[in-house]
Write a protein that binds this DNA or RNA. Sequence first.
DNA 1: GGTTGGTCTGAAAGCGGTTTCTGGAGTTGT
DNA 2: ACAACTCCAGAAACCGCTTTCAGACCAACC
Lengths: 334, 334
Amino acid sequence: MQNRPGRPPRVTISDVSTAAGVSAATVSRVLNGTARVESSLVEKVHHAVRELGYRPNAAAQGLARGEWGTIGVLVPDLANPYFPEVLKAVSSVVRAHGRRMMVMESDENPALEHDLVEDLMRCCDGVLLCSPRMPRAELAELASRGHPLVLFNRVVPGLSTPSISVDFYGGMTQVCGHLAQLGHRQAAYLSGPAASWANAERVRAFEAARAFGLEVTVLECGATSQAGYDAAAAVLDTSATAILGYNDLVALGALSRLRELGVAVPGDLSVTGFDDLSLERVAHTNLTTVSVPRDELGRRAGEILEQLLVHGYDADPVYLPMQLHVRDTSAAPR
Amino acid sequence: MQNRPGRPPRVTISDVSTAAGVSAATVSRVLNGTARVESSLVEKVHHAVRELGYRPNAAAQGLARGEWGTIGVLVPDLANPYFPEVLKAVSSVVRAHGRRMMVMESDENPALEHDLVEDLMRCCDGVLLCSPRMPRAELAELASRGHPLVLFNRVVPGLSTPSISVDFYGGMTQVCGHLAQLGHRQAAYLSGPAASWANAERVRAFEAARAFGLEVTVLECGATSQAGYDAAAAVLDTSATAILGYNDLVALGALSRLRELGVAVPGDLSVTGFDDLSLERVAHTNLTTVSVPRDELGRRAGEILEQLLVHGYDADPVYLPMQLHVRDTSAAPR
DNA sequence: GGTTGGTCTGAAAGCGGTTTCTGGAGTTGT
DNA sequence: ACAACTCCAGAAACCGCTTTCAGACCAACC
């Protein structure tokens, strides 16, 4: 940014203005189109800009305009296959509105997470926050900062912060309905992170499931295929005729284990996933699952944040519906 | 950033200084520890900061210091499972050095890519660029801008820009050596994007392979499991006894197809991957492959960029070695 | 006791843009 | 021909912070 020894000197707006024989104000006006400028001067300015290779300094613009031209996204885990696709969509939406995207990862570390949000708030116009486990009070405190904030995959009742998420409850209800319809009466749920909202929403669906005759037992597991692999065997000790995975990875991990144990799927046991990561080409398995509209999720999230920045946004939480895909791993129980 | 109607007013350094009864300079000194300040004043400042909830404005700091405290990363495709892990490591390294990470995605769109790099250059202290296909001349032009730049997974001979990448050539040579040792004489390579450096490096290994008796035919394919699935059948028309995938996804896609076609692996045909995405729990398949140290790659990349920013960096391109993992999909040919 | 020297603080000058304000030139109308 | 506008360009203020610079204060020393 500044001129350092050995680096080509930075070109500033005043370099351009002297080269073009106009004032800095005029250069600014030409470049931003904020006011009419006589065409001969416009030409001179453009010429000088090209000649000198001038690029406006983003920090100075940010300071002067009172906007950074940047939005921040905080996710718990970049390596979770769920997020990259969402980020992709967010990035393209905000880019279309002329903003850049800053990404941070919290690793689910609560102390760090708080710092990161604060940090994002001081260098971004708005923040998209995905924090499945942050305590409600802390969330409320951050939201009260008066800084544009959108909650992602998390709905906090009573908080007026805009939020967007997937209807996990509805999705899991569909899965249960499907299994109940096939005749299942007992199922085991390989649970994700206990404290997470996403997991709680899924679990909430099991109450509804009881209404149509399906009893679901919750087993500790995790969110990875390895966790699914490790937890699968325990299901065999129960009377469950179906395994509901917290997500596709868990389900595929469980499938992997079941295959080793010689358990036929869906003959002996049905298995369902969640998320639809579309790994069938990889996994050689057409998993029955429900899909998250990840692309739309990211797009809508970006749009809500943008709208919040421009007009202000005041609407109910957005829930995107999930869609059931009945494929090869579910069937009527023996 | 600026005070907008309906938002709590922004607290600036001068608010703090008047509240604490000191000058702005003193506040700055206390907060940054850049000079000794009498302890009673230090206390007053901290108190006022806490009271008002002051957070320094990042743009103003950037402008005054001549540093943004931000680095930028440009990747071709966020959804590629390769990158998230790398980004994770980069993010954590630069964070440890007090910098934030900006992420952009080029979609391999050449025109866009150029703009994005320029954009990153005007708002980041340094840029980490992953662009497998950008023409050499354009790369040279960007590098000559005098802005700190590190090339990622791409080595351009004759360019003094620091770069870090994986020894794809060595990795593929190991694969070929392994197959040759098993007795294979003919193999088919399901090729990735033709114009990419990563693909070219792999192909380059096939010349070396000829030296130890393995002839590799290159077949157009792509980089996804779907592409692998689609391309697999064509191999059966050749006399190849092994399929080398451009990456693990391609290999797994091919495996999926071979299974459908009733071809035994590794009995009838050996299959090897590349990258080691560790999908075995998902894919129920222990793929013979070579692994990329993705975590180290990201970490080293971040460190090189950081070093470049602080001291300047002038060293040869870094090549990280790959490691061969012989697993269940390779065996001696019939 | 009057320099000298060393600390610590505040005033002020940037950093590189944007935007308001001001004034000169050119039009229009009477 | 002169007042009243309009239009456009430049000067200057400002965004919020860092850092230089100069001055105030106090201790030490000759």
